[in-house]
Every structure is written in C-alpha cells, then in structure tokens.
Simulated assay, not measured.
Amino acid sequence: MSSRGKVITLQEVADRAGVSRMTVSKVLRGAGNISAETRQRVKQAADELGYLPNNLAGSLSSRKSRMVAVIIPSISDIVFSEVLSGINATLRPRGFQTFIGESGFDPETETELIRAMLSFRPAGILLNGGMARSADAESLLARRTCPAIQLWDCDRRALDFSAGPSHEEAGHLVARHFLERGRRRIAYVGAELDKDLCARRRHLALKSSLAAAGIDLLSVTAEDRPRQAVTGRFLTEQLVRTHPGIEAIHFLNDAMALGGLSYLHDAGFPVPERISVVGFNGTSLANAVRTRLTTIDLPRTEIGEKAAQALLQMIAEESVPDVWRAPLALVQGNTTRPDK
C-alpha cells in the first residue's frame, strides 16, 4: 500500500519564499500589487513543496469532505460507465457523491484533472490504471492526502488498492481458445495501444502465448483512429486484403469486433467456418447482432463496487488488501467453433 503525504500550508510556502502568508495568498489568487520577481519566487516555492490550494476551505472547514474524485478515460464508453455505476451505487448510500473527469487516455489531461480534483481535498480519488501516467501526475499522487484507488487493472500494482482483471490472463485465454480449435494463422486488430496500456498488455500476452506454440501473431493497429466499430471494419478489410489466409482475429474490444464482423459478412467470409472472431469486454454489443460474438466477459459493475468498498474501508481507517482480481470468462458465441 502506498503512502500519502501531508497537507502543505500557506505558511510553509511563505517561509520557503521569504514572504508573508498574505502575500502568498494574493499571488496564488492573482490579486494585489505584487512584483513579478516576488510572484515568481512564491510560485516556485509552491511548486517545490507541492502546495495545492484548498478550494473547499471554509465550506468544509468543520467537517470531512463527502466528495470522491473519479477519472476515467471515457464517459460515453459503456465499459467505463458501468464501472462508474458500481462506484456510485456503493458510495451514494453512504452519503458520498462523485465528481467525474474524462481523460480521453491523454496523460496531460489526466494530470490536469488530478491537480484540479486534489485541490478540492476529496475523500478519495479513483483512477483508471491502464494509462501511461506522466511524471507530474505521479508526483501529485505521491503527495496526496487521501486514499487513491486504481481501476480496471490488477497486473500493475499501484496506489493504495487495485480493482480489475488481469489483462495478461485475458490474452493467454484468447490464445488458448484459438489453439484448441486448430487455428494457426491468427491476427490481432486494435487501436490506440500507445495510450491504453491494458490493451497493449493483452496484445503482448496473446503474442507471447502464440510464440510459445510456434506461431507468429499478425498485428494490424491504428494509433490515430478511435476504438470503435468503424475502425474495426476498416482494419479488418486491410487485414484480409493483404493476408487472405488469416484464420482467426482477436479484436481490442467488442465494438471493433462487430465492425470487423460486418466487413467479413459483406465480403463473403464465413464466420466461424473460415475465420474465427473473439472480442473483449462482454458488453451488450456481443448480443446486438444476429451472429452472437465470442468474447471475454468481466464484471464491470462489480469492479466499481469493489473499488468503492475498499475506499470506504480506508476512509474508516480499516485495513484492506492491495488488490481485488476480477474474474474473467470466455463466453462462447457463434463466431468461434465449439472445442474440438
């Protein structure tokens, strides 16, 4: 479990900068007739100490915050919205409310959200674990004074508690599924792997499992396209045009898999007789078309619930384990054949 820092006060900044507490307050509020040299000295002292302004000073001076900060990659993505539902369903009956930030898998956006949210002195902060976090974000989190929870990832242990699946296990599970069905020419189709570390970890696990069986994984990815059905269709067309002998495709998520399926059906490739397809997430999209998608399912709402429960325990100063590993299940649909 990681440690948390102490609250840096205005007086400490004033002492470091060699000015009065009132001068520090004016500089940080952008008020008063303060020289440029003094302003620079105060801001440098605040940065060096890791000072965060308390935006709730006064209104919460007599009681602890009941607000919890949550930063997720996408509010519109059903995967993260279901995790958020689990968080809210657990926290609200206990009198806590969430305020939400959307990072878009962008490290700089996440950093600014962390900075802004911590300035409100929340009771806790929950963040997606599948991102390449900036050094500034890591520094801010190291100096936090509240519990911090990692969502969606248990492979990379971080912060006070992690709730999520093993993405390495997911990659190995897909590889085994294809191999048990005699597939040898296997491809991966994904997007934004430079931003999504969890997806990248699944991809690498799939690749290593196949390599152990003497198979080279063919990967077709796009870093400048969204993780949506339209990208799945576009990349699948590229894949089968250049590698017509492909026998199986694992997609980054269910949405991209459905886009790929639409192209395969339109182009006359029988699924699963000619090409097998597996998605990831187990969302309702897997059952949204006539051909039911084979996919990796995981308890998204429960991930949010477990994360929120751990936060409540930490707020109550109760001990918690470092991690909750979400169970994975490969759900057999119509896009892969039953086991041989």
Rank of each mutant, 00 (worst) to 15 (best):
P53E: 09
T90P: 04
S62Y: 09
I100E: 02
Q40G: 08
T90N: 04
G58K: 07
M67I: 12
G104D: 03
S62A: 15
S25E: 00
P93W: 14
S74I: 03
Q44G: 06
S74E: 11
T98L: 07
V68G: 05
T38K: 14
E82P: 01
A89N: 13
F99A: 08
K64R: 15
G58S: 05
N33D: 14
R39V: 08
A45F: 14
Q97W: 06
I34N: 02
I87N: 02
S85Q: 13
I34S: 03
T38H: 09
T38D: 05
I75H: 03
I100L: 15
S61M: 11
V70K: 00
G50A: 05
R41A: 15
V68C: 05
R41C: 11
K43V: 02
S35W: 09
E82F: 06
S76V: 14
G104A: 07
A31R: 11
F96V: 03
G32C: 08
L60T: 12
R92W: 14
A89L: 11
V42A: 06
L28F: 10
S35N: 11
G86K: 14
D47A: 15
D77N: 15
E110F: 01
T38S: 11
L91D: 03
P107N: 06
K26S: 05
V42S: 04
F105R: 02
S103N: 03
L49C: 07
N54G: 13
G50H: 07
T98W: 08
E82M: 10
L91V: 10
G50M: 05
K43C: 01
V27F: 08
V68F: 08
R92C: 09
R66L: 12
A31F: 03
R29Q: 14
T38C: 11
G101C: 06
F96S: 00
T90W: 07
S61V: 07
R92M: 14
P73Q: 03
G86P: 14
K43T: 02
V83L: 09
V83R: 05
T38Y: 09
E102S: 15
P53Y: 13
S62F: 11
V79K: 00
F105K: 01
I100Q: 04
F105W: 14
L56I: 12
S25D: 10
S76C: 01
S25R: 02
S65M: 11
R29V: 05
